[in-house]
């Protein structure tokens, strides 16, 4: 059961970094991809239909850790407390910037939301880099936390690949200045948590008893359904974005 749960965690955390990594990266590049507020709304529209369905991979990963690896949950969160506070604040600020931007027609409001999106995206990416680095170096605050910070740049690289494929031709040209291939960067992002998780002794942190079985078996059973619902989103919003969206 441990093995199944580890595989599922690899799928969900890899899914998060590959999918949400792209919209975080586009958020980081927002000031460069969109030079005025109209363009920036278009840039946000490139990932708007996906971002809700992207961040749930992280929520599900956290749920999986709580249900299957409670030992990892408290060790990791407690050891890396400051990093996770930065990560959460970045996440909340970014999400609110996205949700609120389109709600009020005022230059200052949209400008403020743009700042929230960009700052939140950078905070998220840097915090993730640091968390992954810390995991690789024994799971505590230390050398790894600093060494990991540059990993945040991977989000930029991944986001540029996404923007190149989703933005209208003119704006996509700006993203193309960063040499990137979406397929390749998605693969790298998906493998990051696998590499970072190699050092963890999984059987030690796993849940005991029926809780683990219930979590792992149910998750494995619904996974095809979850993937299908996400595929429906991607199929519905395929192609280049031409007009602003609700956000």
């Amino acid at each position: 059961m441990d093995v199944l749960a580890v595989l599922l965690l690899a799928v969900f955390s890899g899914g998060y970094l590959a999918l949400a990594g792209a919209d975080i990266g586009v958020g980081m590049l927002l000031p460069w991809l969109g030079r005025d507020q109209r363009e920036r709304r278009l840039v946000i529209a490139s990932f708007a239909p996906f971002f809700l369905g992207n961040e749930v991979w992280l929520v599900a990963s956290a749920g999986l850790v709580a249900g299957a690896f409670p030992g990892l949950e408290h060790e990791l969160l407690e050891e890396l407390y400051p990093l996770f506070v930065v990560l959460l604040v970045g996440w909340v600020v970014r999400d609110m910037g996205l949700w609120l931007r389109g709600r009020v027609d005022a230059v200052a409001w949209r400008g403020g939301c743009d700042v929230a999106v960009v700052a939140g995206s950078w905070a998220l990416a840097v915090a993730w880099g640091s968390v992954l680095g810390s995991l690789l170096f024994g799971g505590e605050l230390g050398v790894g936390s600093v060494v990991g910070v540059p990993l945040g740049v991977l989000f930029v690289w991944h986001g540029a690949g996404f923007a190149r494929w989703r933005l209208p031709v003119g704006l996509a040209g700006r993203a193309a200045r960063i040499p990137s291939r979406y397929g390749l960067s998605a693969l790298v992002m998906a493998l990051l948590p696998v590499v970072a998780g190699v050092e963890v002794s999984w059987s030690r942190v796993a849940a005991e008893g029926a809780g683990l079985t219930m979590t792992a078996v149910t998750t494995a059973a619904v996974l095809p359904l979850l993937v299908a619902s996400q595929a429906l989103v991607w199929w519905t919003f395929r192609g280049r974005v031409e007009s602003p969206s609700y956000l």
């Binding site: 999986l64 709580a66 408290h74």
Partner: peptide
């Protein structure tokens, strides 16, 4: 954690 985490996991995933 081995008990309390399970329903939270199902909440997020299912």
């Amino acid at each position: 954690g081995s008990v309390f985490g399970a329903p939270l996991a199902l909440e997020t995933i299912v």
